[in-house]
């Protein structure tokens, strides 16, 4: 009987301690989740800002005058050439173009 009582008391104290620990741990985890979520949201917002900034810097209205300043112009029709006329090029480039042409013909 005494053993039973002692066991019960021990059990009660242990479970109380465990329960307390568990609730404490839960609170800590909750705080951690919240802080992680805040970080994630902040990072997402930062990414959005960076994406917007990149697009703003890459907007054609800005790139166009910069490119023209460097002497670049829209391609003229005579600047285009057929891939077949490049197949005579020596070295790796020529070989690559010939392989591409052969592949496109076999398709």
């Amino acid at each position: 009987m005494r053993l039973l009582n002692l066991t019960a008391i021990c059990f009660a104290i242990t479970s109380a301690l465990m329960l307390y620990g568990l609730s404490y741990e839960t609170r800590r985890l909750e705080a951690e989740v919240q802080s992680k979520e805040r970080t994630a949201q902040k990072t997402r917002n930062d990414i959005a800002v960076l994406k917007a900034e990149r697009s703003h810097l890459a907007r054609p209205e800005r790139i166009d005058p910069l490119a023209r300043h460097l002497g670049l112009l829209p391609p003229k029709p005579e600047q285009f050439t057929a891939p077949s006329s490049l197949a005579v090029l020596p070295g790796e480039i020529g070989a690559e173009i010939r392989a591409d042409l052969a592949a496109s013909r076999s398709r």
Binding site: P74, P75, P77, E78, F80, A82
Partner: peptide, 19 residues
């Protein structure tokens, strides 16, 4: 058209004829 045709992938006929 000079500006947009290359962007749209229209091949100039000078080349199209040789293909």
């Amino acid at each position: 058209i000079t500006r947009i045709a290359p962007q749209l992938g229209v091949v100039p006929v000078l080349i199209a004829a040789t293909q």
